[in-house]
Nucleic acid binder design. Structure first.
Lengths: 222, 222
DNA sequence: ACATAATTTAATGCATACGCAAATAAATGC
DNA sequence: GCATTTATTTGCGTATGCATTAAATTATGT
């Protein structure tokens, strides 16, 4: 078997991430290093390293003597993040279109789109969100820019927790998949400009929906 | 006086950065944690923290038992980074134009442009690079997206060392400032699309010059 | 009673120590 | 002489303890 004995700091990163996404460590809450250490049943050292890493990824903030604060996201933060995603994924879509991928290369992307259809048919929002993540991650991968992959990954993480909430507040994203298919087709046909602009519009649309939703519900922070 | 006693890990980050940019820690070189610790005259703990931070910023890489490697940049890396800068600064320029800044708000930006002119007149490339940095940093600041500021800062750091080399290999960037002024004017006049596209072209032009320069000189890594 | 100073508390930043695992060198077998 | 095994070294990951310093609390003077 491939039993991978991962180090304590790796485990700390992983477990803290999970607990942040699940909401067990809720946005805005403060936690002492020693508290997290005993929670994860390890010493402060690996926790500290994990916390530094997660800070650089924008998930939390170190406030000396106050503890580690899980960063809340305001509507403005969401807008910022979606703007970054719009630009970088837009470029990725363009580059993917220019790469001249064949059907086989795009099979995974197509699969994610199909999965989203299925999830919508089954009204399974978690499955939809999962497939949506795969679509966006794969799109960026096809763009072949490792920096963009990293940045988009970080930004996606930051909105993951907040999206959980908003996902259940809005109607089923049935129209969303039309956009995805348009992006797919543009990439498949090498229409770079079309791929970029279609995806841009898609993301900007998502941004406005979410930001308005948050503001309408007076959710100052998530 | 404002003597700010900064912590050892802060100092480690700062000093390591300086030594990376100066080339004292050259690209591709490996260094043991203990080696860096004695270099900075502190224990391994703060260097370790600094090294983790710098790794997340893309300046170096941790290779267990091999030491920390100062990351070299290939022409492809430069292309990746410039693509990211193009997109995000382009958006920043657009947003800055939409913000409706007055002359006072843009004074710092104008100052940087003037400094570049002076530097070129004096053939002072270091001063030019410095003013160019200020221009780009200020542009991004005016775009009012803290994530973009952070990312652009990181990407600029990554190319800083490499740019030192290329700067002295190419002709004086006299034309460059025409672009800067066009961007300035577009922002000043609220011409969002113009601001974005002018700046995009500017960055893409810089990208092609540098990448071709590196390839022509067969510089595989910097 | 209020403001300020002194004292205590407690969380962090850092140094140090140690065990493990990987890399290297030495030794043994064929 | 080469390969394989065993010993040795060495760098890293983690734990732990202490020093530092910011915050909280109490004390003191007006």
């Amino acid at each position: 078997m491939s039993e991978k004995a991962l180090s304590s700091s790796q485990r700390a990163i992983q477990e803290l991430r999970e607990r942040i996404f699940s909401g067990e460590l809720s946005a805005g809450s403060d936690h002492l290093e020693s508290e997290l250490a005993s929670l994860l049943e390890m010493s402060r050292t690996p926790v500290r390293e994990a916390v530094l890493t997660l800070e650089s990824q924008g998930l939390l903030e170190l406030r000396p003597r106050k503890g580690v604060r899980i960063l809340p996201l305001s509507p403005d933060d969401m807008a910022e993040i979606y703007d970054v995603l719009t630009e970088l994924e837009g470029l990725a879509a363009e580059q993917a279109a220019l790469a001249g991928y064949g059907e086989k290369d795009l099979a995974f992307l197509a699969g994610a789109i199909d999965d989203m259809d299925k999830a919508i048919a089954a009204s399974d929002l978690d499955a939809w969100a999962d497939a949506d993540d795969r679509f966006h991650a794969e799109l960026v991968r096809l763009g072949r820019n490792s920096r963009i992959e990293t940045i988009v990954g970080m930004m996606s993480d930051q909105v993951r927790r907040a999206r959980m909430t908003t996902l259940f507040m809005r109607p089923l994203p049935t129209k969303s998949n039309e956009d995805h298919r348009k992006v797919y087709d543009a990439i498949r046909n090498g229409e770079a400009r079309m791929a970029r602009e279609t995806h841009r519009d898609h993301r900007q649309h998502a941004k406005s929906i979410i930001v308005e939703l948050l503001q309408r519900h007076r959710l100052k922070y998530l």
